[in-house]
Write a protein that binds this DNA or RNA. Structure first.
Lengths: 186, 186
DNA sequence: ACATTTATTAACATCGTGTTGATTAGTGAA
DNA sequence: TTCACTAATCAACACGATGTTAATAAATGT
């Protein structure tokens, strides 16, 4: 029992059309009618695969973030020593490769939740790694974690939306310094 | 020549209804019809005052942020020494007073641009105050500014959305420490 | 080859939008 | 108080997006 190729074909066409449109206009102005037209299929067909455009968006984000997580984890083979400089560098380079998607998601006004989902991933990661002794002794852990998570996501967002004004390895180096200063590394 | 009281009355009713609805449901699900109904006025009347619901939202945000800026600036009478601990404390307390509005704006999914506008204000402020000598020597100023601005906005957002789990003065103290660590204060 | 699944087509009711024209009511100023 | 002006109301309109349906055609896996 294999997958019906018509399904894959249709879903690919829908996602492709959706991304094209996202690069052109705000999410709020994209209609199911537009997507179907661009994908060369009947509007009814869209509803056979997705509940509405929000559902479609959600699925697209899910797929992409799964890829990001894979890269983040891959280079840090040793889970106890994370992040490594290499894992940070690999991640910045990953963003470089997928700049189109991330620009699209971050540029688009009224984009529900994409930034939040990046942030959530970051909070989870930092919570496991932050060192609360030394310089951070006596601080509220939650505040520190939130502080750092927002800072890092903000940097990445800035870097992407400004078309990567510094090379990936410089960004990685400066991030490395800021993590050290706040004792987020192991 | 004074202002027609009918205009004020109508606009207040519209804004009031809008805020009520924002506390109940996502912005995307709020219609002009709903707002008018809740405000007890004709839908046509809405269009006499605002272009659409986005325009209304924009005006509401504008008014509120003007108030925030006034507080931020008020306590730091001396412009060369800013931020002061007092100005930070005053700001956290301001958020406490207006928790309803900020919760509403930050909770609401698909809220266009509110967070970004807070962030922009912060970037501007930090850019003028950050100290690039000492610990920050050799770093890219833009990266540092973005890092800190996102961190601070993130903390505030976390604090508000989590119903202020620590008192305003503790938040102010911890923020003060983090600013010192990264030499954002004067 | 055949049963099953998917896609197409056209139509439908429903809802939100933004605008219009005629009418009513409230307002500020003389 | 009167009066000109302006705002609000009401009903109606065309338009476009939504989500669903039923009949039909096409593609697929076995």
């Amino acid at each position: 029992m294999t997958v019906d190729r018509r399904i894959l074909k249709t879903r690919e066409a829908i996602k492709k059309a959706f991304f094209d449109l996202m690069a052109e206009k705000d999410f709020k102005d994209i209609t199911v009618h537009l997507i179907s037209e661009r994908a060369n299929l009947n509007r009814g067909t869209f509803y056979l695969h997705y509940l509405d455009k929000f559902h479609l968006l959600d699925k697209c984000i899910e797929e992409q973030l799964a890829g990001l997580l894979r890269v983040c984890a891959s280079t840090g083979a040793d889970q106890t020593h994370f992040p490594t400089f290499d894992s940070i560098l690999a991640t910045t380079e990953y963003f470089e490769e997928h700049i189109l998607f991330y620009t699209c998601m971050l540029t688009n006004e009224g984009m529900p939740s994409f930034r939040d989902r990046l942030h959530q991933l970051m909070v989870k990661g930092i919570h496991e790694q932050v060192n609360m002794s030394g310089i951070n002794k006596g601080m509220n852990k939650e505040i520190l974690v939130q502080f750092m998570a927002s800072a890092i996501v903000g940097i990445v967002e800035w870097w992407i939306l400004n078309k990567m004004p510094v090379p990936a390895n410089q960004l990685a180096r400066e991030l490395w310094t800021l993590l050290e200063r706040n004792q987020i590394r192991t």
